[in-house]
Design a protein around this nucleic acid. Structure first.
Lengths: 169, 169
DNA sequence: GCAATTCCTTTGACATTTCAAATATTGGTG
DNA sequence: CACCAATATTTGAAATGTCAAAGGAATTGC
């Protein structure tokens, strides 16, 4: 497999043979980093707003669609399963942050939208959320942040084109 | 809202002013990409091995520690809470993939280790798992993969140094 | 020694997650 | 109009996830 390369290549690369496991390494690091950030965001959402991350995500989608979204759309955008959206919206409705409506022209559909209370809460949370992220990434070179954003985009495209069940985004 | 834009800079950047929201954009993209990959890995683990991702993660840690690990150590390494580890190990034990033991010198402790059956299953799954990752990232430039790995490492370090409750890794 | 503290794991209450199966509604076709 | 397929959501079972509180076991301090 690999035998005659030298130079800038690190030991692991030589031993494993070429780039064989780079993808796995990248994935493990992406996963642990994402978990780390998620947990921190969760903790702060909980401590400061008594909210959960999935609820925040869901509200973020509704915030930018003032007329509300059908649950299926919400499911697609938040990458959360249909059955899951049902429960999330139920709890948010119980808290008075979201309302559900069934349009007359298609009664299969349920549309969720933010209440004024939900809108106000989300505005506050979003500002805090953004500043948490800035804080956490404070030591990262802004140029790297842009570069990461763009290259992760390339990863996402590649992955999207190699799914067993073709989804998209 | 916007009216006097220019050149290569995108609208969002102008409106928001400078790098203000780069961190947030990066985070959202990391999160969605990670979700995408996780879901695909989950689906394949389920379809091909009737296993779950957390179980796979847990077994991966035990695989590299032939003498087993205490549950607290497992919890730290998998970034899963203590209470959660209890249930995971319970189910893996019920499936005969893991055993639990309490050493005589400290009876507060529970050590989990892979059974031969667990070891064998993990070996098979790990090979498949690695090749799934290679496939999904097939369209990404190998140089980008290395660059991403290293820069995400920088993100992880920055985040680790800005947690409300200092953890580590 | 014994009490207080610390360490490690489990338990309990909930929220979120997935999948598959069930339900309800619409739209098209014979 | 009746039936069938497609669409949209809900439900149910099982696993995972969080936190906080409770439990047992070892260590520390007096």
């Amino acid at each position: 497999m690999a035998d005659a390369e030298v130079d800038t290549v690190d030991l692991e690369t030589i031993v494993q043979g070429a780039h064989e496991k780079q993808e796995l390494r990248l994935w493990l690091r992406m996963l642990s980093t994402t978990k780390l950030i998620s947990q921190e965001v969760r903790r702060r959402l909980r401590n400061e707003f008594k909210a959960t991350l999935p609820q925040f995500d869901l509200m973020a989608q509704l915030y930018r669609e003032h007329d509300g979204l059908r649950l299926g759309e919400l499911s697609r955008r938040t990458m959360v399963t249909n059955g899951n959206v049902t429960g999330l919206v139920e709890r948010l409705e119980a808290d008075g942050l979201v309302v559900r409506e069934t349009p007359d022209d298609d009664r299969r559909v349920t549309v969720a939208k933010l209440t004024p209370k939900g809108d106000e809460l989300f505005t506050t949370m979003a500002a805090a959320h953004e500043s948490w992220l800035r804080d956490m990434m404070a030591d990262v070179d802004p140029a790297d942040i842009k570069a990461l954003w763009s290259r992760i985009g390339a990863v996402k495209v590649s992955v999207s084109n190699h799914l067993s069940d073709p989804n998209f985004d």
